[in-house]
């Protein structure tokens, strides 16, 4: 599959290109004011309001430091959370590289990673630049109870 790499705190993660709509430069967002730490707020993408999620908080626990190479990756997520509808989410990443071809299906199973709450982390493989782990972006929203407490209107009726 083709993936786009992003590097969070020197760890490489891969995002499936099939889930990506487009890559945007960092634009200003309206802060959410409540909710979990990884939910930064709302952004305006060509007239459409999308939630902005900070990948660094999810995988590293610390907010992304703003820099020139930072990008917003607009994802299209197939999730059952919102009545089987596909939804769009903006993911703030420190930097990107790719797209490149990587085969994550041959990675096999690694012991010790099947714990609850870690379902957004996919299989890990090694290439010429070191280890890289696949992000299951769809599960990011599924795995967190706090997101479900948000009013559905905030997502369905922008």
């Amino acid at each position: 599959m083709h993936v786009l790499f992003t590097i969070v705190n020197e760890r490489r993660f891969a995002i499936d290109c099939a889930e990506i709509i487009e890559v945007l430069p960092v634009v200003s967002h309206r802060p959410a004011g409540t909710g979990p730490a990884w939910l930064l707020g709302l952004i305006n993408v060509r007239g459409e309001l999308l939630p902005l999620v900070d990948l660094s908080v999810i995988v590293d626990g610390k907010p992304t430091q703003p820099k020139l190479a930072s990008r917003i990756v607009v994802l299209r997520l197939e999730t059952e959370l919102f009545s089987s509808q596909a939804t769009k989410v903006g993911l703030l990443v420190p930097e990107i590289a790719g797209p490149v071809m990587r085969d994550f299906d041959a990675a096999g199973v690694h012991a010790g990673f099947a714990f609850t709450g870690g379902s957004h982390l996919g299989p890990t493989i090694a290439d010429e630049d070191g280890m890289v782990q696949l992000l299951r972006c769809r599960r990011i929203l599924e795995g967190d109870a706090a997101l479900r407490q948000l009013p559905a209107t905030a997502w369905e009726q922008p």
């Binding site: 786009l4 099939a18 487009e22 945007l24 430069p25 990107i96 790719g98 797209p99």
Partner: peptide
């Protein structure tokens, strides 16, 4: 240059799709 870069990334993604 920056805009060109973004443009090419998006183009690549589109081409992959």
């Amino acid at each position: 240059a920056e805009q060109t870069n973004l443009l090419s990334v998006n183009a690549a993604i589109e081409a992959e799709k």
